[in-house]
Amino acid sequence: MNAPIALERAATVRGVMADARVTLDITRLLRRAAYATPSGIDRVELAYARALLALPDARFQAVLPGLGRMGYARAALASLVAQLERSWAEGVPLRAGIVAKAWAGLRAFPRTEPGAVRLIVSHQHLDRLDRHAARHGERLCVYLHDAIPAQFPEYARPGGAERHRRRLRNTARFADAILVNSHATARAVAPYLVEAGRQPQLLVAPLGIEPHWAVRTAAAAASPPYFLCVGTIEPRKNHLLLLHIWRAMAGRAPDATPRLVLAGRRGWENEQVLDLLDRCPALRGHVVETGRVGDAALAELIAGARAVLMPSFAEGFGLPVAEALAVGVP
């Protein structure tokens, strides 16, 4: 995600981000530091952290149970960002000692300055948000990535729909500005603003692509033909449709059927999909699961695919589509 472009767009929210001292919430980065691979939202928070580290007056914070709002040292964040970029590219988790050192960057939160902006670019603790952000004249800017659990509770984990509704309601009640990644997300958020009777500034700031995604290697282009589906194997992503298509193709012409590569971990409530993956003879040799893969391997998989397939029932943005188009993959 190209955060400098997103920050430039965010700065155009008049009176909220422009010429203000920004405090970025990096709670999610701390919580995800031990993970080997990032989610799309992880990538967004990492990109914003990298971009704001280039601004000398930016500050950083985390909100943690039992500790509340804590400051975070700039040098510790710079080190964490560099470490995460390497570990997530390779798909290898950080060593326990590095993770412990990252947590040691917490500090007492400095006094809030009037006119400062608190920026939250993940959904972290939005369900517990209150008017505290407005004390001492501080303003709040929130990035919402989707409203999917509230719109489509049938695809959410148990309890996830109501928790996300709280996030959306709190954002509508307390935020001075809201960033969203697409016009579709903006439309989904709008009813919550009407319900709250408020009109915070709403800006569509689409996600960008890191430069290393836009390189298609000769080796990737020469790979045996395969199609790629990227994302956690969960009902919303509609892997079931692809597996039925591949089973039909393999039944008609097994020797001419290309591979289907599924890049992503196994998620929840997937009995039918997992039964097909584990027990369907027709799919063996035609469907390959990679599990979690690092960003470098994922970029190679996307670049080498005949096409990236994304038959999701709902998406807030759909970053793999942009990543594929960046390298000319349908």
Rank of each mutant, 00 (worst) to 15 (best):
Y155T: 07
T171E: 06
L126S: 03
E271R: 14
Y72D: 00
I302P: 00
P225L: 12
V293N: 05
A11C: 10
T27I: 10
L77T: 00
H183W: 10
T257R: 01
R169M: 13
R107N: 01
Q124I: 10
A184F: 10
E113Q: 09
L7G: 03
Y143F: 15
P211T: 08
E210I: 00
A54W: 08
A196R: 00
A221N: 11
I5M: 11
L202V: 01
V81R: 10
P65W: 13
P153L: 07
G285C: 01
I233L: 15
R169V: 12
L193E: 04
I245M: 15
R236C: 09
A78E: 12
L193T: 08
A108N: 08
Q83P: 06
L276R: 08
P211V: 02
H244Q: 12
F60Y: 07
G15A: 08
H286P: 03
E323C: 01
A73C: 13
V22D: 13
A82S: 06
A147L: 11
L298M: 05
Y226P: 01
P149V: 04
R166W: 12
T112A: 15
E323K: 11
A18M: 13
P330R: 14
N170S: 09
A222L: 06
L274F: 14
A172K: 00
E195K: 09
G251W: 02
A6P: 02
Y192E: 03
P4W: 02
V327C: 15
E90W: 11
A156C: 05
R139H: 13
S312K: 11
V194R: 15
I178F: 06
A248V: 07
A6W: 00
P65V: 01
L277D: 12
G160A: 14
F152I: 05
V92D: 14
T171S: 15
I245E: 15
D127L: 06
C280D: 13
R198N: 00
Y155W: 13
N238V: 04
Y72E: 00
R21M: 09
P158M: 02
E271C: 03
R216I: 01
L106V: 04
C280P: 00
A102C: 10
L283P: 02
